[in-house]
Every structure is written in structure tokens, then in C-alpha cells.
Design a protein around this nucleic acid. Structure first.
Lengths: 95, 95
DNA sequence: TTATTTCTTGTCGAATTTTGTCTAAAATAG
DNA sequence: CTATTTTAGACAAAATTCGACAAGAAATAA
């Protein structure tokens, strides 16, 4: 499940309007709409607030958010998978 | 081996001056210095030119470059490894 | 040592990207 | 149809990236 989809489905489950979520997050309604459409990425702070507003596990949401950042970095690259594996190796050496 | 280290060691192996590499890449010497110190990231175009100038396999260099971009995204995150694995899954589903 | 060359660092402005809001149109609900 | 919600586009502000310049530090040569 993609981040934008998750946010939208969670909001709908809770029967909240974009307007209501927007006010909890302190942004314009249009921005929430865009986030749910995948047109804009939420900031880290917004992710935190969204987790609370929509009652989503923060760590899970953050993971998804970071994962999409990575995905954006690599999505059109031939070496995407290799590059990711390389990063994984590096992180494992460090820990 | 980190990107900056690789670039520096390759240059030294070829006994090239920063100034010389800089002129091949069409940038200021200071910029190459910073890249070798890890203070600046080369652009994609510069990676291409560096691969030629220093006789490094382009695909390998690109992989390293992308990997460091990813690394920057996740380096201070608790969920770094999980987020990466999640991205990997997504990529594998797609391919 | 002194002189010369190479390398490094800090800072600035330009260019690009990201972010958020406003307005108005499109879609949906009543 | 009317009222409300959602979406799309345009724009400005803020943040980030990028490259150059200049001054100084470090290394090397004479």
C-alpha cells in the first residue's frame, strides 16, 4: 500500500473530511487533497501529525514515507536494486 | 568504498591534479576538492564525466552515487533498514 | 628558508526545487 | 437545483542546490 492510498483510506474509514484533517494538520485543504492524490509529499512534521489525526502507527507511517523517498530516488534507474542493496550492506556494516 | 574516496584514489593513481580533473569536468577546482572531501555531491552529469576522466566503470560509479543518495535519506533513521527493504520489495514486484 | 604550486575552506548570488495558499472549476451529496 | 466537498492550476515564499570566486593552509620544490 502506497502512502497516499493509506492516508486516504484511513481518513475515509474515520469518516473525516479533507477540511477536518487539514485543520488538524494546520494546512490548507488543497494540500491534503494533493497528498492523498500523491501530487505532493507531506513533510516529516506533517507525517507526525497525520499519524495522530488518522490514528496510524507513527513508525509504520514514517517507514512508508522514507521508503517513498528512496523510491523516488531510484525509480528510473537501471541499477536501482543494486544501489539499494549496496546501501543496505553499508548500513549493516555500520550497525 | 565511499564515492569520495574512490574518486580521490582513482585520481591519485592516475597522478592527476585536481586542476586537471576540474578542467576535464568543466568545473572549478574547488568543487572537485569538495567532492573528494565529501562536502558536495557531484551531479549526474559530473558523474558521467568523472567516469570518463578517471576511467571508472560508469555503471559502478552511478550505483555508488545513487547509493549515497539513499544513504543520505535514511542515515539517521531508526527504521532505515526496514524502509529500504520495503522499497526493495516494491521494486521487485514491479520488475 | 623562501617561493611556487596545489589543495581547502568559507561565502556569495543565481538557479532550481519544494512548499503552501488562493481561486475557481469539477465532482458529489442532499 | 443547491450546498458542500474535492481537485486542479497558478502563483509567491521558502528552502535547497549549484557553481564560482577569493583568501588562506598545506604540501612541494628550489
Amino acid at each position: 500500500m502506497i502512502l497516499s492510498e493509506l492516508l486516504k483510506s484511513k481518513r475515509e474509514n474515520k469518516k473525516l473530511l479533507l477540511r477536518e484533517v487539514a485543520s488538524m494538520i494546520d494546512v490548507d485543504t488543497a494540500l491534503i487533497s494533493k497528498i492523498e492524490k500523491g501530487d505532493r509529499k507531506p513533510t516529516r512534521e506533517q507525517i507526525k501529525k497525520l499519524a495522530i489525526a488518522l490514528d496510524i502507527n507513527y513508525s509504520k507511517l514514517l517507514k512508508l514515507w522514507i521508503s517513498e523517498k528512496i523510491y523516488e530516488d531510484v525509480k528510473n534507474e537501471d541499477v536501482a536494486i543494486d544501489a539499494i542493496k549496496l546501501t543496505l550492506k553499508r548500513l549493516k556494516v555500520e550497525e
